[in-house]
Design a protein around this nucleic acid. Structure first.
Lengths: 166, 166
DNA sequence: TATTGTTATACTCTATAACTATA
DNA sequence: TATAGTTATAGAGTATAACAATA
């Protein structure tokens, strides 16, 4: 396959991953959104952090992160402590309830994935994980060099071709 | 990595793919949604089809598909012809304007991916594409066997589409 | 009566902009 | 003045349910 065909196919496959993500989301408890799970999982993995760092890890705007964090805090899944170094910030930390929630989600995810991927080899699953992590890293690097709305963002953002706009 | 850890990690990586998809979506012309692109690309790949088949390929509800199709039809990107075999249905077909739109999108996607993935080997890109296609197929099979809610459309689900893997 | 497709409504997630509190 | 975070608003995407037309 030529490189350009590869890119088109990759873009298509990335789009269809959304369906898989929706399937996984259906497994969650009613008041637990997918966003909550990702957020809490990041807190478990990286430990205490500020809002801005969390937004960066999630690759979403801080305003959105703020709402997700408030949602989780209201349910006791995370704690917010004042940051002694900067009183504008609060340090976010996974709570025991949050840990328990992650445990329950893990059980559901694992059962579903075990059922759907039972004919996958460990190597294949591992390779997919590695490549997805690398994909995200490559895009993250690219995004870091070219802020979204900047007019000078030439690396990732193609110049706009003429369109039959409407 | 133990199988259960693999599954947790996979679920996490799948979530972060959303950020990559958002980045790609930012490349699109203002009136062209990501949903339109996927829809039109499926019409180009599989040719003329009915709404129900398209919804199945997209793995989204037919009501949603109907809206996306209407949006594309209003912009002349696809044609809807009466189905001679069943007057309840219309046959959807990519229009010349739709083909041109896909071509422009392809240019933008390719440029962006070429910039972000310039240090990836062809083999790695190909492996990622294959594994994503296989992942979607595995989930499609699983979904077909275990309908989400109750007896909505239990046994009338056609088997998951065979992916072209190219 | 069942099925194809459409429309109305509600919910989730995200981005932009305006705002506050602090640096 | 600049930055961290919050809130209001708007837009895109999807699911459910009610409906129309046809099988």
């Amino acid at each position: 396959m030529a490189r350009q065909e590869q890119y088109e196919e990759l873009a298509k496959q990335l789009s269809s991953v959304a369906a898989v993500r929706r399937d996984l989301a259906r497994l969650l408890p009613p008041d637990c959104s997918p966003a909550s799970v990702i957020l809490l999982a990041l807190l478990r993995q990286y430990g205490e952090m500020r809002m801005s760092r969390l937004a960066e890890l999630l690759a979403i705007d801080m305003s959105v992160t703020s709402r997700h964090v408030a949602y989780c805090a209201a349910r006791g899944w995370l704690d917010r402590q004042p940051d002694p170094a900067d009183r504008r910030s609060r340090l976010l930390r996974l709570s025991p309830d949050g840990e328990e929630l992650l445990g329950q989600v893990s059980v559901r995810y694992t059962q579903a994935l075990a059922a759907c991927l039972k004919d996958w080899s460990d190597d294949d699953v591992g390779t997919l994980i590695d490549l997805l992590a690398r994909l995200r890293a490559s895009f993250g690097d690219c995004r870091a060099r070219t802020p979204h709305q900047s007019a000078a963002g030439a690396d990732c953002h193609a110049p706009a071709p003429q369109l039959p706009a409407q």
